[in-house]
């Protein structure tokens, strides 16, 4: 049995005969998958579309920025969070954000519910730990506050698969920095050294104050972000280019959120 949500990944496979599932079950009108609750702890249903992420308060500025870069209006009206999670492409734009937020993927089957931290959910390109009998119900995360952003590099502003993507979350209340990297490894990667480096600076200056980083600190952060990547050469870009843009994006992302309290 194959589930169909917005169809923006699955229909391409069906149109080109790459998949011939015996049964397709459309879940795009299941109201239980369209919940969106904030208030400190965010619960977002698998059926929430990108258009809804842009129209409503989704409890993550970075997720909203990521949604804005997805495809086109047509794709954003149909494509869902659950489809992005289930497809688990290294270029899935919500995924670096879920990684940086330390989000949990909620799965459900007749056997009950499983809650899998995103870091353990995705295991390779288009591979994850979801069993065939499990439904992605949604994702959950603690609201990390406003100091977060998402960036992506591609050949156009619209309709582009990321050559590299980056999400940065500075969670001041929980004293944590999260960095998620997309399109530069077999899975979504974290950048632990860069996270620790930035956290140490916030620790020294005070998490609740807004700061002006030195150019050297920004550069070093960018460098550490790039070293976390495990990129390859492919049709969209070379490994060297990916490392280069990750360093640039890391630097810019930190400069962008540093002063947001």
């Amino acid at each position: 049995m194959t589930l169909l949500a917005g169809g923006t990944d699955l229909m391409v496979d069906l149109n080109f005969g790459r998949k011939r599932p015996e049964r397709v079950v459309a879940i795009d009108r299941v109201p239980e998958l369209s919940h969106l609750e904030g208030n400190g702890h965010v619960r977002m249903g698998a059926g929430v579309t990108y258009t809804r992420m842009l129209a409503e308060d989704v409890g993550s500025a970075a997720l909203r920025e990521a949604a804005r870069t997805v495809g086109s209006p047509q794709i954003r009206n149909a494509g869902t969070l659950g489809g992005n999670i289930a497809t688990s492409s290294p270029a899935g734009d919500t995924l670096p954000v879920l990684a940086a937020l330390d989000a949990v993927v909620v799965l459900r089957s007749k056997q009950g519910e499983r809650r899998v931290p995103f870091a353990q959910f995705m295991t390779g390109p288009k591979k994850n730990v979801r069993r065939a009998d499990e439904l992605v119900v949604g994702a959950e995360w603690d609201d990390a506050g406003p100091a977060q952003t998402f960036m992506k590099v591609g050949t156009r502003n619209a309709m582009v698969i990321a050559i590299a993507g980056l999400a940065l979350v500075v969670d001041r209340p929980r004293r944590r920095v999260g960095v998620g990297l997309g399109s530069c490894g077999p899975t979504i990667l974290r950048a632990p050294q860069a996270e620790a480096f930035a956290a140490a600076i916030f620790e020294a200056h005070g998490w609740d104050r807004h700061l002006t980083p030195s150019d050297a600190e920004l550069k070093e952060f960018g460098r550490l972000v790039a070293t976390a990547a495990r990129p390859i050469d492919d049709v969209r870009g070379t490994a060297a280019y990916r490392r280069h843009v990750l360093a640039v994006m890391g630097e810019r992302a930190l400069a962008r959120v540093w002063s947001i309290t």
Binding site: L4, G7, M11
Partner: peptide, 25 residues
Amino acid sequence: QGECGSCSVLMDGDLVCACLVLAGA
């Protein structure tokens, strides 16, 4: 494959690519 928009239709008022909608759905 959703790239060109020449199949754009409205479904319940939303602009979508008809090539990415399963007819049954």
